[in-house]
Design a protein around this nucleic acid. Structure first.
Length: 249
DNA sequence: AACACATGCAACCGCGTATCA
DNA sequence: GTGATACGCGGTTGCATGTGT
């Protein structure tokens, strides 16, 4: 039995998001929040599936997203949590403020998993060969690497040694890599200007009020907590928005 | 310089679950 | 209790870009 598509796909765009689409989504969510992902694209003037909008917002446009440049501590946390939680990326992401489950998942598959495998192979080799070179031994001491498996599970006989990364391989620059930590990706916010709300006005009076007729208005807690929404007004590139008028919470 | 291959990331897809009528 | 709807999550894919030959 094939599950019905999440939305009517006729005429809906797929693939990479354009700056214009990002602007529209950011403008809308910033002003109204994500009251209903399914309906949101319609009101935001986007030819996208609600699911796609949600993903784009959560993984890319949301404020306080960290991109790239994983710290040693973050990688250690990921490896450690992965050991206890498995592939529950959202749970892991919850422990890493600013990181998304998707990004952590990607980072695991592209970096940490590989290193973990290598470490595992090395460990196997070392256990079979006692004649480890002094250099290797020193390196091990310098980095302070230990077998987390045996640390966390003293009784465990697990063979896999998942080691935190000690050296960060240079990250390839990509359009999405803002390489700034703790900051809202400037590129995203710079995309938006006052004019970006103009298209919303084109919908007429109903546009501004209709979303708030919904009872199931929803704004993610982490977004609220990190955003000026909490404090009554938005200080944004679009100017100040009095949130008392928006009934967000 | 041109091509093939490798890598990393953004986005999509399908399933499970929560909620509501 | 049941079906419909929406959301969230994890697995997977496709493409842009980097690297090697």
């Amino acid at each position: 039995m094939v599950r019905a598509p999440c939305c009517d796909k006729t005429g809906l765009k797929k693939g990479a998001w354009t700056p214009e689409e990002d602007r529209k989504l950011m403008a809308y969510v910033t002003r109204y929040g994500c009251w209903n992902w399914r309906q949101l694209p319609k009101f935001a003037g986007l030819q996208r599936c609600g699911k796609s909008c949600r993903l784009r917002w959560l993984n890319y446009l949301r404020p306080n997203i960290k991109r790239g440049n994983y710290t040693k501590e973050e990688e250690e946390t990921i490896v450690s949590l992965h050991k206890t939680l498995g592939n529950r990326w959202s749970a892991i992401a919850a422990q890493l403020p600013g990181r998304t489950d998707n990004e952590i998942k990607n980072h695991w598959h592209t970096n940490l998993k590989k290193r973990s495998k290598n470490k595992s192979a090395e460990a196997k080799e070392m256990s079979s060969e006692d004649d480890l070179s002094p250099n290797d031994k020193n390196q091990e001491q310098d980095t302070g690497e230990t077998d987390i498996n045996t640390q966390n599970n003293p009784g465990s006989t697990a063979q896999i040694i998942e080691s935190p990364t000690r050296t960060l391989s240079p990250q390839r620059a990509s359009p999405g890599d803002f390489s700034s930590v703790d900051n809202i990706p400037a590129t995203n916010w710079d995309l938006i200007s006052d004019d970006d709300f103009a298209f919303l006005d084109a919908y007429g009076g109903n546009f501004w009020t209709e979303p708030f007729l919904s009872d199931d208005y929803f704004m993610p807690n982490d977004f609220l907590a990190d955003s000026p929404f909490y404090y009554g007004e938005i200080s944004s590139p679009f100017g100040f928005i009095n949130m008392d008028d928006c009934n967000l919470c």
